[in-house]
Amino acid sequence: MSTASPASPASGPVNAPQPAFPTEDSGASRRRLPGDLAVWFFILAELLAFAVFFLSYAFARARDVALFNASQLTLDLNAGAINTLLLVTSSWFVVRAIQAVKRDDKAGGVRWLAAAMLGGFGFLVVKVFEYAAKFDAGITLSTNTFYMFYISLTFFHFMHVILGLVILGVLLANTWRGAYGRDAYHVLESGGAYWHMVDLLWIILFPLVYVMR
């Protein structure tokens, strides 16, 4: 398993990337926060935003279960499930890309990142078809509370997938240029962490909005 420790034993501690903010554990112990601390603060804030959204949905649903259940039947379960598969697989590709870069396997890094982006684009395509079907049916934010949440939540998430793809694109270009390697994967891990967050959010969103009745 090549998870936390970078590179060969000889260059381990010396070349370990220095976090820009020393964390309380750095130095003394081997526990390490992958990526940049600022990115983690950002992720935390994003998680908080979605938490508020998820819980608003959950409690609004509790007050009108019949309406939510009836409207939920019109959603495309298969599309939601395919999108989950696409995102978790894409996330896994990013992990493989980082592992490749940590072995100084530049070509591997590029390939895995490209595959990850493909997964993200696939997600967007499926979602666009889903939206098109709903909008054709005349559904809007004002149709009812369920659709208000369905459209807002998934669209807010959709925007995060787009941002995640932009980040992956930058990482891909940098990997291509050879900017990352066994001693320099700090930025790659930061971007990866963001993409995994997008995945994590969908893992809650899918059962919550599409399946639970």
Binding site: D25, R32, L33, P34, V94
Partner: peptide
Amino acid sequence: FMELRHAPR
């Protein structure tokens, strides 16, 4: 994926 298994507690 996020590799927080070995991150600071």
